[in-house]
Design a protein around this nucleic acid. Sequence first.
DNA 1: TAGATTGTTAATCGATTAACAATC
DNA 2: TAGATTGTTAATCGATTAACAATC
Lengths: 229, 229
Amino acid sequence: MMEHADNPIHGVPEPTLRRLPAYCQVLQRLLQQECAFVSCTQIGRALDLDPTQVRKDLACAGAAGRPKVGYPVDELYHTLETFLGWNNARDAILVGAGHLGTALLGYRPFEQYGVRIVAAFDGAPEKCGNKIHNVMVFPLEKMPNLLERLNVHIGILTVPAEAAQSVCDMMTLNGIRAVWNFAPIALTVPAGVIVQSENLFSSLGILSSKLAAQLRAESPAADLKEAIR
Amino acid sequence: MMEHADNPIHGVPEPTLRRLPAYCQVLQRLLQQECAFVSCTQIGRALDLDPTQVRKDLACAGAAGRPKVGYPVDELYHTLETFLGWNNARDAILVGAGHLGTALLGYRPFEQYGVRIVAAFDGAPEKCGNKIHNVMVFPLEKMPNLLERLNVHIGILTVPAEAAQSVCDMMTLNGIRAVWNFAPIALTVPAGVIVQSENLFSSLGILSSKLAAQLRAESPAADLKEAIR
DNA sequence: TAGATTGTTAATCGATTAACAATC
DNA sequence: TAGATTGTTAATCGATTAACAATC
């Protein structure tokens, strides 16, 4: 089996992957301003990151710059876009046409960032048969049949927690290889399937505990009030 | 100034904060099943985490267990809930009543997880004056006035990237101390203000690059196709 | 008692940051 | 040339994992 030494996908640290999209956003702004070159220092300033870290991240994605000059903006953008697989959007299905699902179906920027939702599914018959934001909603039972023909690898999961695992099983059984999970539950999947869980509550946990800590630090008296309550 | 040695807020690592909500979810399930005690091993199995890590996380939140027995489920749940500030929901405002904003306004579980949205704002006059999911939508100009009276500390930002920074400034100027940011842009805030950025694109970056790597690993030929394209 | 589990300290691992030579 | 920046190697830092005594 071939090893791709110059194909820098293997073993890229997750924190790096998480930062790459932010670099893309900065670069897009620079492209609009018609800047030709950019340095790690500049990018770092825009995102409040260490320039060395930026440089290392860019190297992970296979980008090359020139000493003294920096990186050509358009070339760098293209490199990152390709690395992330964003220049040819992959097809995806979405299951769960509730509030959140509907919002995601209507979220235009997705196409630009590598994902095109080609079909939606829902367990409730009354939601099926019409289009939401131009995407057709099918009954759940149709999923196996449709997936077989569409060659789709990404599944977006916006169902309630109770239904998440069984819908996920259904997806993986029918060829889905990457699940973007918005249900607040840990999913079990077969080996080789990627799960990316959004879990808004995790963020909410960080936000609220940090806020609590800060307010407490400012007025220690609040401690007592909380304790009494 | 008092130091709270037994008030374990200071210096809790962010990865820990990120996991605590998941523990809460597991515990909630156990409560429904009327389990009295739970061990770190059990929790770890449910979430695919090292038991030692679970134990350490729980200790960070101030939970105490008993050797051989484990942790009392109800007590542990209460400890975590209190630590996260989820047992008395904090008021929040939301700005940007688009698709995503509307979805969040209708997301029932939030109240259970520490956040109650008390008012929404939008720049477009036609969206103002009516209720979305029972929350009133006001014109942006009303924000300073309303915030002054409401004593709200959390702001949820669901406006387009272009508007995000200026709306954020408006929030912080009027007493918002924690911004939950859904706009795909890095915000600049005064010292002492907490920003938690959701950035769906970061997750999408991880998902798509991992998927790309995996598909590539399976059929090296795809490499060539991509290269030619 | 024996076995399982907590609580805590030490070892490992990986990511971030610092240092510095190479380059334009 | 001098100065800024890249690319890379080494040092630091922090989180995860392992080890083990204390406990019920």
